[in-house]
């Protein structure tokens, strides 16, 4: 295997939307790099022409007919909301 993997922890944390302290960044990157180092073991395997497995027992065409079933009452839909108004979920102003 080539060089030891390096994680851009700031970029990954931003993609994952998790704020990390500097201490956490150091800790997580070294832990993740050691796990990735272990994972690199997969490169020993030649997987050319091997089909990927997405489902253990794959079947096709699993669907439902287009029929409306019951909905959640609005009160139930909103009962866990951290903040609500006018039967909607309040979020910080989104600037497009």
């Amino acid at each position: 295997m080539a060089e030891a993997p390096h994680i851009d922890i700031d970029k990954v944390a931003e993609l994952a939307r998790i704020a990390l302290t500097d201490e956490e960044k150091t800790k997580f990157s070294s832990q993740l790099e050691s796990i990735l180092g272990y994972i690199d073991k997969l490169n020993e395997l030649d997987t050319t022409n091997v089909e990927p497995t997405a489902h253990p027992h794959s079947v096709e065409n699993v669907w439902r007919e287009d029929r409306a079933t019951s909905e959640l009452p609005t009160s139930e839909a909103l009962k866990n909301a951290p903040k609500q108004r006018q039967n909607m979920f309040v979020v910080p102003k989104v600037v497009e």
């Binding site: 990954v12 993609l15 998790i18 997580f28 832990q31 490169n43 091997v50 990927p52 497995t53």
Partner: peptide, 30 residues
């Protein structure tokens, strides 16, 4: 949870998908 979410985010991120996720799906077949 943070550790695993970060790891999972990394292995799916642009440029790494084939090397990690696709590779793992193929190994899964084996």
């Amino acid at each position: 949870v943070k550790r695993r979410v970060l790891l999972g985010t990394y292995v799916l991120s642009s440029g790494y998908y084939d090397a990690y996720y696709l590779k793992a799906q193929k190994t899964r077949t084996l």
